[in-house]
């Protein structure tokens, strides 16, 4: 059947052509720009970018935020995802909906909430003061803490959903079985749950980590001028100081980070 050989190509060509013309070509061109100094090829943009301590701090801070948020969401979401088994079945749909709603809501609206909550007279501080945990209001807004909190709320749903679906594949009685054989809860976690859900963890971790590296709204609104991340620095270089050389270097760095993490994922045999 001749259609066998031609049809599939007819089907994929429009999309491939489209992506090549309006996506791959411009992006690759931008990335290649980072290697041109004047009209010649060179690494000058890189040496001047990495030679500036301020930029290195931003890079390090971005990695730190991404790592911390990924770890924290893994630590929180494992028990939370496991806990969904104890939710009465008829409420499980509601719980899932509550996890999905934030995902479907404008990140501007979601970040805005934290502006209200985290200020010096916001309710987080009011609660802390009343509980006697602190004597003075704590500075949260426009610090790295605010960025951690905002990012965690932004990306926990992704980790939670992937872990929940990973745990659905766990045989239902495997944990009680381990416990009855004398395993502690820690052992049943490290020996049974973790190996069986490793793929979900890798997928969720990648989503959270790359999300943190590329998110713009949260650091821009909650971090302020002091807590710059790569995304806000990129915006400043391209949109404020019109320094396209530096902006293209940052683009390469961000892309390298996301691709490395995605590559690790693929190496682990996960799915995208």
């Amino acid at each position: 059947m001749p259609g066998r050989t031609v049809t599939p190509w007819l089907l994929v060509t429009p999309a491939l052509l489209f992506l090549t013309l309006v996506f791959l070509y411009p992006v690759v061109k931008l990335l290649l720009n980072s290697f041109s100094v004047g009209d010649t090829f060179g690494l000058g943009n890189y040496t001047s970018f990495f030679g500036d301590r301020f930029n290195l701090e931003v890079l390090w801070r971005t990695l730190r935020v991404a790592l911390v948020v990924t770890l924290v969401s893994a630590v929180v979401c494992y028990p939370a995802a496991y806990g969904i088994q104890s939710v009465p079945p008829r409420y499980r749909g509601l719980v899932t909906a509550l996890i999905i709603v934030p995902l479907m809501t404008s990140p501007v609206a979601r970040t805005y909430a934290w502006l209200v909550l985290l200020g010096q007279t916001g309710i987080v501080n009011t609660a802390l003061l009343r509980s006697g945990l602190v004597q003075e209001p704590v500075r949260i807004l426009y610090t790295e803490w605010a960025v951690y909190i905002g990012m965690a709320q932004l990306f926990i749903p992704l980790m939670l959903l992937t872990l929940i679906s990973a745990m659905e594949n766990l045989p239902r009685d495997v944990v009680p079985a381990a416990r009855s054989l004398g395993a502690t809860s820690l052992q049943s976690f490290t020996r049974v749950i973790l190996p069986l859900t490793r793929e979900g963890l890798v997928v969720g971790g990648t989503l959270v980590f790359t999300g943190c590296i590329t998110a713009y709204v949260t650091p821009a609104l909650l971090g302020g001028a002091r807590v710059q991340l790569l995304a806000t620095l990129l915006y400043q270089k391209a949109g404020v100081t019109v320094d396209y050389a530096a902006a293209s270097v940052i683009s390469v760095v961000m892309l390298a980070l996301t691709l490395t993490v995605a590559g690790v994922l693929r190496g682990r045999g996960g799915r995208t």
């Binding site: 992506l19 070509y25 411009p26 915006y235 902006a247 683009s251 961000m254 996301t258 995605a262 995208t272």
Partner: peptide, 25 residues
């Protein structure tokens, strides 16, 4: 290869896409 090309927009940070297309267009 086709699959990689098709998933690439999800891998490239949005700001980078925006900047690249701004200059291109």
């Amino acid at each position: 290869v086709i699959q990689t090309v098709l998933t690439s927009p999800a891998l490239v940070p949005g700001l980078v896409v925006g900047l690249a297309l701004l200059q291109y267009f």
